[in-house]
């Protein structure tokens, strides 16, 4: 059975977000960048879909991303916080992009691509511009 994969637009946007985020400060490590991205998504989208709703989407995104990236096996969702295990040195940028892309894909599946992309792009408008290029 083919594993469901995020649509290309979700992966492209996730890639652009992950690559745009280090510019916002921190040590620039993959774990730091991912924590920062999830915190920002929680802040903006949690208001719309509720903190519990956000936690569920992150947990599900982790499960979906692990299918193609078993390296994420050590990462677990933490209600109301950043997933634990993101500091695992085995994690690479590709796996973290997959996690974000699966989150966008899941959101798009539930509320439609236009709205999901629009909501995420509102958080990282510069990344969206970069993705278009």
């Amino acid at each position: 059975m083919n594993e469901p994969r995020p649509r290309p637009s979700a992966t492209r946007l996730a890639k652009a977000i992950v690559r745009a985020e280090p510019a916002r400060g921190g040590d620039g490590s993959d774990a730091e960048v991912t924590s920062h991205i999830i915190a920002r998504l929680r802040q903006e989208l949690g208001k719309l879909i509720g903190p519990a709703g956000f936690d569920i989407l992150i947990a599900r995104s982790l499960v979906l991303a692990r299918r193609a990236h078993p390296v994420l096996a050590g990462v677990t969702a933490v209600p109301g916080g950043t997933p634990a295990g993101l500091d695992d040195p085995a994690l690479d940028e590709v796996a973290l992009i997959a996690l974000v892309a699966n989150f966008i894909e899941l959101l798009a599946t539930l509320i439609g691509e236009d709205l999901a992309m629009g909501l995420v792009i509102d958080v990282w408008p510069a990344a969206a511009e970069e993705e278009k290029k």
Partner: peptide, 11 residues
């Protein structure tokens, strides 16, 4: 109605 579902339906 959970907001995710409301947005899904309202669209």
């Amino acid at each position: 109605e959970p907001p995710l579902k409301m947005l899904r339906h309202a669209q």
